[in-house]
Design a protein around this nucleic acid. Sequence first.
DNA 1: ACCTGAACACCGTTCAAGT
DNA 2: ACCTGAACACCGTTCAAGT
Lengths: 178, 178
Amino acid sequence: MAKTKRDQDREAKHKEIVAAARTLFIEEGYEATSMSRLASTVGVAPNTIYWYFKDKDEVLVAVLDAEFSASVEGYLMLSASDPTDRMMWVASQLERVSRLVSTVHSRLDKSATINAWHNQFHSLSEDMLRFELQQAGVAPEMIEARTKISVFTIEGLLAHPIPDPEKRAICAALLGAT
Amino acid sequence: MAKTKRDQDREAKHKEIVAAARTLFIEEGYEATSMSRLASTVGVAPNTIYWYFKDKDEVLVAVLDAEFSASVEGYLMLSASDPTDRMMWVASQLERVSRLVSTVHSRLDKSATINAWHNQFHSLSEDMLRFELQQAGVAPEMIEARTKISVFTIEGLLAHPIPDPEKRAICAALLGAT
DNA sequence: ACCTGAACACCGTTCAAGT
DNA sequence: ACCTGAACACCGTTCAAGT
């Protein structure tokens, strides 16, 4: 199933837009980045974006996917290290994306696309944290509640950056047995 | 320091606007409620709102204050009940205001007014939860981390509504000693 | 002091027209 | 198929004018 030249061109432009949006959304914010600004960064007319994406939310999902898969890649590479370190890494890795976290939450009931992405992301995060807590020896009947607590806490750490030592104490407390 | 007739009138209109905004912001959302819609609900021209409030964010802060003080009043009235019940009450009480939580977070770096309100709110929440955890017999060296975890978890419960029994298990786990 | 109609500078998105 | 200029229906906010 070889790609046609056409498809390659289209894919390249698609990637170009996502790359520009990724920088702008993360550094300036989603609402602060107008479609016009995004278009002019790519060097194209504002409405041209709509040839590649249904709407602005769809651009956001593409950015989130790119950011997420980059993070997963990094996570898998340090699976041997200390659990608290791993949790710290997840929190700090996602911190640069913190503005997007609140953007996603505020658009949950406005966009079905965003909502779907958010659900999938939470499932994956829960799976990952449940595994870490099991490894840490948390009692089985507490696993579900503790998993949710961990997810919410990490989400909180993203939205409210605090000093590193304090963050470490929190991550350690999350993993504490009993 | 008796209030003049003028001041009373002004205050009445002020309250009228906040009351309308409170319903609209909570039921329809902040971004979804245009200043025009708010104005027409009150029965006034759109720009009239600006005679009473600097901008839309200032209206939001007024709504948040009204909602918060109503909650505090309710909280003080059930100080005798079970700790888990109290924490459940806080979470569910604030749940109806959940859309505003993400709105506040997404406007943190756009509005100094909102930022100030948010900081004050977090201080108060932390004080309250620290007290609950002390009562529950949490070890002193763990208090700070556990307080932050509780704040973030309750914030998470607001943004991601889940079934009551699960919510209860989470609140109980937050208060667990050790 | 309080309120308004009209305007300003945006915004995301659509559409008819070009290649 | 891809891209554009022009327009649409909004938005929060400002300003000069009225009472």
